[in-house]
């Protein structure tokens, strides 16, 4: 059970933390700079990619996953998979409603049922 006992005693050198910290700052600047340019549909992907790199650095070094592994790693990474399932299946609905709306609209003359914006509802 105590296979990962080393994790208790790992004392990470300060320079590792400083390097990680610097990398995070650089990536923050990078993401801000990248957002000043318009890459069209790539904007979101670029921002997410950089955020993902930053997040990985935090998890790997600051949260000590590098020296931990084992179940904690499986649990955390696994939960991201479940989040992807959540997003993926929700979009299997949201992103494909147009088709039926269009067909029904043709036959029944219905307006788009998802976006019935009723003017200035709020003041």
């Amino acid at each position: 059970m105590a296979k990962h006992s080393e994790s208790h005693h790992v004392i990470v050198p300060v320079k590792t933390f400083v390097a990680t910290f610097s990398a995070l700052l650089v990536l923050t600047i990078l993401t801000v700079v990248a957002s000043r340019f318009d890459f069209g549909s790539m904007n979101l992907s670029i921002a997410l990619l950089i955020a993902f790199c930053k997040a990985s650095l935090v998890v790997w070094i600051f949260m000590g996953m590098k020296w931990d592994r084992g179940f904690n790693f499986v649990a955390f990474v696994g939960s991201i998979l479940f989040l992807i399932i959540f997003i993926g299946f929700t979009f299997s609905d949201i992103a494909f409603r147009d088709y039926r709306d269009k067909v029904e609209g043709e036959y029944f003359g219905l307006a788009h049922p998802v976006k019935p914006i009723s003017g200035a509802h709020h003041e």
Binding site: I85, F89, S92, D93, I94, A95, F96, R97, R100
Partner: peptide, 22 residues
């Protein structure tokens, strides 16, 4: 259990794709 929740939405107006997959 995490892959099937959409079967509660078969008649709620979710997309046909989602309904079939679920």
């Amino acid at each position: 259990s995490f892959l099937v929740w959409g079967h509660h939405l078969f008649v709620s107006g979710q997309s046909d794709n989602a309904a079939t997959i679920f």
